[in-house]
C-alpha cells in the first residue's frame, strides 16, 4: 500500500514537471530560429525562462538571441490546440515587444494545417498587445477554424507572458 502510494506520488509529480523541460531545448530552438529567419549568424544568449502561461499549464520556453551586429531579440516556443491535437509554434519578438515572425513548427492533425501558411501568419507581424478578434483582426481560414481561433487567442497571451517575464515593471 505504502509502496503503491509513493510510486503514484512520484509518477504524478514527474509527469507534472517533465513536459516543459524537454520542450524545444536550446539546440532545436536555435535551428528553428535560423531556419525561420534564413540567417546563419545568430547565437543563443540565454534561456530566459521556462514558464507556464498565465492561468495555464502550457509550456512556454523563452530564449534571447543575438545577431552579429549585437542586436538582441527573443523567441518564445509554445503550443496551442487544434480540434484534436496540439501544434507547436514559435513567436519571434524584438526588443520593442513587437512580433517579428510567427512560424508553426509542428502541425500534427490531418486537418487545419492551413494555419501554417506563411502568408496567413504574416498577419501577426507587428502585433504588440490587445485582444485579437478572429475574422475581424485576423482573417478567417477555411478548414482550419479551430486552430486559427486557437492561435489568434493564444498569441496575445504568449506576448503578455513574455512581457511579464522580461519586463516585470
Amino acid at each position: 500500500m505504502k509502496f503503491i502510494s509513493i510510486t503514484l506520488l512520484i509518477v504524478s509529480l514527474t509527469l507534472f514537471s517533465a513536459r516543459a523541460n524537454d520542450f524545444y531545448p536550446e539546440k532545436q530552438a536555435l535551428k528553428a530560429v535560423k531556419t525561420a529567419l534564413k540567417e546563419k549568424d545568430i547565437t543563443i544568449k540565454e534561456q530566459v525562462g521556462i514558464t507556464k502561461w498565465l492561468e495555464k499549464t502550457e509550456p512556454l520556453v523563452l530564449y534571447s538571441f543575438e545577431r552579429v551586429n549585437g542586436e538582441t531579440f527573443y523567441a518564445a516556443f509554445t503550443h496551442s490546440k487544434g480540434r484534436y491535437d496540439y501544434f507547436d509554434y514559435m513567436v519571434i519578438i524584438n526588443t520593442k515587444f513587437e512580433v517579428e515572425k510567427v512560424k508553426v513548427l509542428k502541425y500534427r492533425s490531418e486537418n487545419g494545417g492551413e494555419i501554417s501558411s506563411k502568408k496567413w501568419l504574416e498577419q501577426f507581424i507587428g502585433y504588440t498587445t490587445g485582444y485579437l478578434h478572429y475574422k475581424r483582426d485576423i482573417s478567417a481560414i477555411s478548414g482550419a477554424t479551430i486552430s486559427a481561433m486557437s492561435i489568434s487567442r493564444d498569441i496575445p497571451k504568449v506576448m503578455d507572458t513574455v512581457r511579464a517575464n522580461l519586463n516585470p515593471q
Partner: peptide, 16 residues
C-alpha cells in the same frame, strides 16, 4: 496531485 494533473489538463485549452 493526480487530480491536479487532470484539473490542469482541463484548463489547458483556452477556447475549446
Amino acid at each position: 496531485f493526480m487530480g491536479m494533473g487532470i484539473y490542469a489538463q482541463e484548463k489547458k485549452t483556452n477556447n475549446a
